[in-house]
Amino acid sequence: MPCEHYKDALTEVAASGAVPQGELRAHLAECASCSAAFDEEQSLFAAIDSGLHAAVNTEVPHSLLPRVRARLSEVEAPRLRWLRPLVFASVSVALVLVIFLMARPWHSAPEEVAKQSAVAAPAPAARSTETNPENVSSMGTQMAAIHAAHSHTAQNSTNIHSSASGNPEVLVPPDEREAFARFVAVLNERSDVAAALVAKAPQKDVVVTADPPQIPDIEIKPLEGTEIETSDGTGEKH
């Protein structure tokens, strides 16, 4: 057992890791029990230091930094993830706008075409009033040319015609197309049918005036060999 007077001093010196000085040093040189207690205290603190040192200074695993870097990359990815839907949404909106703007002329195009055709229609109709075989044959040729061109574009591609003319293409079922081709062939062969088709239809509101028919006076003549009914009811043969 250490001397009671030096007990705390021994512990404090051992805890601080300092070398005993002055009176304590002299006492340790004289007192064997205090010297032994001091040695015990020193070995105890050495064991504590050794345990702490071993616990704290272990080798750092080589996987630590690569794992941290991998996790950092994972953390960064969600930070930028919100950008993707934003970009996608803005691109979608822009695309819809572009489609809408491009589609607007397409809606008005048939109306314009209808107006243009309405304006252009009377011209050939007016010309058709002078229906002669030459005109009819030339019209038949035009229709055949139109048919040929139409069938050609239909065979190649449906988009070529629409993209070239700027008008939407009318999709026709194949049987109707064949029927139309046959009809055009008939028109080419029979010019009178073509002329009848392109002739101007009579207008409803036009008042047709005609001279009253001249009917001569009726002469009543007895027929030869016929019986004339007499007043007395007996028949008389002539």
């Binding site: 616990a55 704290v56 272990t58 750092v60 630590l64 930094l65 941290v68 870097r69």
Partner: peptide
């Protein structure tokens, strides 16, 4: 800073937990 401070963070944790 990671290369310098990563081991420090590990050692502090190791000192508390005593498990690598």
């Amino acid at each position: 800073r990671l290369a310098e401070c990563g081991p420090l963070a590990f050692r502090v944790a190791r000192g508390v937990l005593r498990n690598t």
